[in-house]
Design a protein around this nucleic acid. Structure first.
Lengths: 199, 199
DNA sequence: ACGCTGTGTTACTGAGCGGTAACTTCCTAT
DNA sequence: ATAGGAAGTTACCGCTCAGTAACACAGCGT
């Protein structure tokens, strides 16, 4: 009942509300399809406050993508923390995460990949965030396969990486939910087993 | 020198020029990023003529996607014609096509998949075209693997399909050209060999 | 009391968008 | 020769967009 610091206040500062609203709307309807006014309104605030925190829509987009990239990175850190010095378990944990993502009805694909499709200007501030994130993700997979003593970790990582990327883009092309994406987790597990290194 | 029917006239009727311009601009800059005025101008015509041939931008988008889908379908028909009753050769032909596509510098991914990302309204006329095309493509691959007597043609087709889709989306996320996509042709050939049926 | 800072509110600008009206020009079929 | 239709031209409508100005109002620490 303490009024001021509100231990777990349900009301966030405007900047966080704006970022949360942008995240929801950008992901659901697309970046170019959503105007700043709609975001401000969804954040229960107004355009002026939005522009005080983010100098332009492009900056807001960059902040949106930075947030997503940060959360993506945290997944890997969590995997490493939960299974220290056990790359096999980390790989399994990642596959479980993939399973979760693909099981989610109403998934609209990878928000970062979608942003790459929508933002094609090569000088857009978002491009570096996108490229860096995807490169980092691929390198994490390679490192994991290498640490797990798989032969040809680059090739295996690329294969696994592309299967997941393909699944998430294909979801958006098939109203039919029983498309190729529904089988990808099985493929991943098979790949891990088939190429399993010396045990 | 006959003036009228112009045997191989370099000047196409307006409708074709508009469609060609739309194709170029939509693919290069994105559908939402390009206005009808710019398309008309690039087609060396004007907005009125554009609207006489296509009732709205959405109809133009649909025509654009229909054209792409038709050309995609023609690839498969050409493969079947070039290698009649030889599904193995057809598969090899498809891989060669994939190799061509991925070797192309400045590739911006699958135009149809990109459209799926940009056009999320579930009632957009483009959605059906997109879904149908991707479903058809997947089924063609399945049929080809089945005809070629591969075991589990659905699984193999999905794997190959998703690898290609993943490669084309990933190209747009990596300024770095030596990304995972550069290895996908090798993966495809390995898959075809590894799972090769009784010869 | 004071000022400071962050927020809300309203109204506005200028540009670009999709789409249309009205008229002219030109080619072609008869 | 003439009429019809397709194409070009210009100007316009209404709307939405990103971004800004000016001002009012709060809470806060001093």
């Amino acid at each position: 009942m303490h009024p001021h610091p509100a231990p777990a206040a349900p009301i966030l500062p405007p900047r966080d509300r704006i970022l949360a609203a942008a995240r929801e709307l950008f992901y659901r309807h697309g970046i170019r399809a959503v105007g700043v006014e709609a975001i401000a309104e969804a954040a229960a605030t107004n355009k002026m406050t939005l522009y005080r925190h983010f100098g332009s829509k492009d900056e807001l987009i960059a902040a949106y993508l930075n947030q997503l990239a940060k959360e993506g990175d945290e997944l890997w850190e969590r995997l490493a923390r939960d299974h220290p010095a056990d790359p096999h378990a980390q790989l399994e944990g990642w596959v479980a995460y993939v399973e979760d993502v693909l099981a989610n009805r109403g998934d609209r694909g990878c928000a970062i990949a979608n942003a790459a499709v929508e933002l094609r200007e090569s000088d857009h501030p978002a491009r570096k965030i996108i490229d860096d994130y995807k490169t980092r993700k691929r390198e994490r997979l390679v490192a994991l396969f290498r640490d797990a003593d798989y032969a040809d970790p680059e090739l295996l990582a690329d294969e696994v990486f592309l299967l997941f990327e393909g699944a998430r883009i294909n979801i958006q092309c098939c109203a039919n939910a029983s498309g190729p994406a529904s089988r990808v987790v099985g493929m991943l597990r098979s790949l891990l087993n088939e190429h399993a290194p010396k045990r």
